[in-house]
């Protein structure tokens, strides 16, 4: 029997004690946060840092970001990805969640690994979902890596994006004293509005 989708509603300003309780120090458990890795996780350690900017360019302090990614071998930890040639990593699930209300600059931060390309001919990327007060629907985007210039240049999804907007999807690599950091600001509106996807 065909059913109709339940409409989306905003996550509102008060998600923190339900969805990101430990990050915000509320007395409720939290099963996914900003750190996706342990010592045993395979792959290059990276940190992703960014802000969610509104139409005035102000950093939003009550957005929530979720990321989903393949492991270092380019495999997703999910039954629909049954490619045995690419090993699962028992120390990596590939999902993270972070609210923008706890850092002084309203940033989100993920400690993760750089994913492998999920197949030949595509660039490595991380799927990013944006929720927030004022967002009636969540928005999907992707994070690509600035040090993957050749792969990015021939990536079939990036090719679908108008050339003058592609750089909104490229996180900038910086070598810092505390490791490799990629900067990825998300602009909801205006000049340089991040490309959001429908699929």
């Amino acid at each position: 029997m065909a059913m109709k989708q339940t409409p989306s509603q905003t996550v509102g300003p008060y998600f923190a004690y339900g969805l990101t309780a430990q990050q915000y120090h509320y007395p409720h458990s939290q099963y996914a946060g900003g750190c996706l890795v342990s010592e045993r996780t395979k792959g290059e350690r990276i940190r992703i840092v960014g802000r969610v900017l509104d139409g005035n360019g102000d950093a939003v302090d009550d957005a929530m970001i979720e990321i989903w990614q393949a492991n270092a071998a380019g495999r997703f930890d999910h039954p629909n990805d049954a490619r045995e040639a690419r090993p699962l990593d028992p120390a990596f699930k590939g999902f993270g969640r972070f609210g923008t209300g706890t850092m002084p600059d309203n940033s989100f931060r993920f400690e993760t690994i750089k994913p492998g390309a999920i197949r030949d001919g595509v660039a490595p990327f991380i799927s990013v979902t944006v929720f927030g007060r004022g967002m009636m629907n969540h928005a999907y985007t992707r994070l690509y890596f600035s040090d993957e210039g050749d792969a990015n240049a021939s990536d079939p999804v990036l090719e679908r994006v108008p050339a003058d907007r592609r750089d909104t999807l490229i996180a900038t690599r910086n070598e810092t004293a505390t490791g490799v950091e990629y900067r990825f600001d998300i602009r909801m509106q205006g000049d340089g509005e991040t490309v959001f996807f429908d699929f």
């Binding site: 139409g55 927030g132 009636m136 928005a139 509106q189 509005e193 959001f196 429908d198």
Partner: peptide, 11 residues
């Protein structure tokens, strides 16, 4: 000021 304002890109 927070809603996506440009068309989504279909993939």
């Amino acid at each position: 000021l927070r809603g996506v304002s440009r068309n989504l890109v279909e993939i």
